[in-house]
């Protein structure tokens, strides 16, 4: 089965926020709401021996998505491509899925009174294009494709990176599918939630 998702190469991420703005422009995301948010991880260590990387956060397109499981109406669902989506027409706005997400990747649209999140730009995929964040990425750090297909760009990138350099967010049974590439040479992958990420409203 296909599982389309993102692979983000943190050795390459420049922390320029281009993906974030591209996403907001493409999807008309409201102020203070993010489908895609770039966090600064670090600098960790003590000056001058410090490390830093950027973590573009996004829906992790979990294999075993808890948001889909708890949805009382089936508004949250999974496509054949393994992408988690929300049918906004039947969402009752109970926000249970927001609680079930281990990463806070979902947000409540105060105007439409429904829950929303990254769609991996399915509307662009439908016309054969890549998600906006991938297309415009300045560092060419973002790859989109089928992680179950060994011949896909994402799979190849992961293979090339080597398993030691491939990371994912903590798994509490949800099996996130987004993969982050970070080599030790750039920085050490931080296992726990970072405290200061340069973004005010984070941890809120």
């Amino acid at each position: 089965m296909a599982h389309k998702t993102l692979v983000i190469d943190l050795d390459r991420c420049l922390g320029c926020f281009s993906c974030e703005v591209a996403c907001k422009m493409e999807n008309g995301v409201a102020l203070g709401v993010y489908f895609n948010k770039v966090l600064t991880i670090g600098p960790t260590g003590t000056f001058p021996d410090v490390e830093m990387y950027f973590l573009p956060t996004v829906c992790q397109e979990c294999a075993d998505a808890p948001c889909v499981k708890v949805c009382p109406t089936g508004a949250s669902y999974k496509t054949e491509d393994g992408i988690v989506l929300i049918n906004k027409d039947i969402c009752i706005g109970c926000r249970y899925c927001m609680m079930a997400c281990p990463y806070g990747a979902r947000s409540f649209n105060n105007d439409a009174k429904v829950v929303e999140k990254c769609t991996l730009c399915v509307h662009l995929q439908a016309i054969g294009e890549q998600p906006a964040c991938v297309k415009n990425c300045c560092g060419k750090a973002r790859l989109f494709g089928d992680i179950d297909d060994p011949a896909s760009d994402v799979s190849k990138a992961l293979k090339a990176a080597g398993s030691d350099a491939v990371h994912s967010l903590p798994d509490v049974g949800n099996h996130p599918s987004v993969r982050y590439i970070l080599h030790r040479k750039t920085a050490t992958w931080q296992q726990s939630q970072p405290e200061n990420t340069g973004r005010e409203s984070q941890n809120g």
């Binding site: 320029c16 281009s18 415009n136």
Partner: peptide, 8 residues
């Protein structure tokens, strides 16, 4: 093909 936040 890259476009930064300013351009966007």
């Amino acid at each position: 093909g890259a476009l930064c936040a300013k351009g966007l």
